[in-house]
Amino acid sequence: MSTTDDRQEFEAHKDKMSRALGQDADALKQSVDLLMSLNRYDYPYLWSWMGVPIIQLPADIVATQEVIWNTRPDVIIETGVARGGSLIFMASILAATGKNAAKVIGVDIDIRAHNRESIEKHPLADRIELVQGGSTDDATLKQVRALIPPGAKVMVVLDSDHTYQHVLDECRAYGPLVSDGCYLVVADTVVGQVPEGSAIQRSKQWEKGNDPLTALRQYLTETQDFEVDPAINGKLVFSSSPGGYCRRLKTSK
């Protein structure tokens, strides 16, 4: 018995619903309210990837997987190593794409010994490079650039210090490294969605106004090279990073 191949229609419906969800302000508000309520349980800290704490929400993990699978970067740069789970996660998806030389570069001002050990002893360690230093320091950026092979497709995830100025400085430093069609992901943009006077608790409290979303919006006024992906971001209502997934349109000249 034959059936109709409805894959294109299925994907079109997903895209339509994702974009529609992104316009539902009430749904986003309800999700943000729930996330703030779950902060008392350290909800983002309850997850792991292949044995290592990942400190991400499930929706962000799935969305990042979709982006990596669809764009197949050769290099992913992540600022903010924490316990290393995100590096392991992204390395595992790169491995699944079949690109044998693809790797993740983790940048952090303080890579603690026990976290370094968890990363370096992991089965995927050969796909991960660690750079210790301030993410926007000239010396650090020089090391990062040296680890990018000529012609490599590059994706960037910014997930370190979430203050406005630091995120804006990171966008300016790492945005130009992103390849055409690949993504700049600014994490924890949900802080910019919380009510005035409220905060999101991670390693420290982050407050609206001095937050990644405000920084990203400023950066997007300074460049025409990125667009906020309406489909990916539309479905990220129960997420740490709604509005944070930006696709590069063209290379600056």
Rank of each mutant, 00 (worst) to 15 (best):
Y174I: 07
G234T: 09
P212K: 05
T163E: 11
L213T: 10
D225V: 08
E170G: 02
Q201N: 06
V156A: 10
C182F: 00
L168C: 08
T163I: 11
H162C: 10
I200C: 05
K153C: 03
L213M: 01
V154E: 05
Q205C: 03
G151E: 01
L213F: 10
D225F: 05
A199I: 09
V191N: 08
Q201P: 00
T163C: 13
P195G: 08
A215Q: 06
D225H: 11
L177E: 11
L168Q: 11
V190A: 07
Y174L: 13
K208T: 09
R202V: 03
P150V: 03
L213Q: 09
G175Q: 05
D229C: 10
A152W: 06
T163S: 14
V190G: 06
N210H: 09
G151A: 10
A199Y: 12
E227G: 03
G209S: 04
Y174D: 05
N233I: 15
V154W: 00
W206M: 06
W206F: 04
R202D: 01
L236Y: 00
Q193E: 13
R217H: 13
A187G: 15
R202S: 02
Y183M: 05
T223E: 08
G175E: 03
V185N: 05
L158C: 15
G209E: 12
K204R: 14
E222M: 13
L220R: 13
K153M: 07
G209K: 03
A231L: 07
G151K: 10
V154H: 10
L220N: 06
E207A: 15
K204S: 07
D225W: 06
M155S: 07
H166D: 05
G181F: 05
E227P: 03
R202P: 00
A231S: 12
D180W: 04
S160W: 04
T214N: 12
C182K: 15
N233D: 13
V156P: 02
T163P: 11
P149E: 02
Q201W: 10
V194W: 00
P176C: 13
S179W: 07
E227Y: 15
L216P: 01
Y174A: 06
L216C: 06
S203D: 13
D225S: 15
Y164T: 14
E222H: 15
L177G: 08
V157Y: 10
I232Q: 06
K153D: 12
F226N: 04
D169N: 15
G181P: 10
V191P: 08
H166C: 11
G197N: 11
L177S: 12
Q224W: 04
D211P: 06
S198Q: 11
V194T: 07
K235F: 12
N233C: 13
V185P: 03
V191L: 02
R172A: 04
S198G: 09
N210S: 10
Q224F: 07
Q224S: 11
L177Y: 04
V237E: 03
L236S: 02
N233M: 11
K208A: 06
G234Q: 01
P150E: 09
V157G: 03
R172F: 02
T163M: 09
G209M: 09
C171D: 00
H162V: 09
V154K: 04
Q218C: 11
A215P: 01
A173P: 13
S179H: 07
A231T: 14
M155E: 02
D161N: 15
V190C: 14
S203Q: 05
P150R: 13
D229P: 02
Q201S: 14
R172V: 05
C171E: 06
P195M: 07
A152G: 10
A173V: 14
Y174P: 12
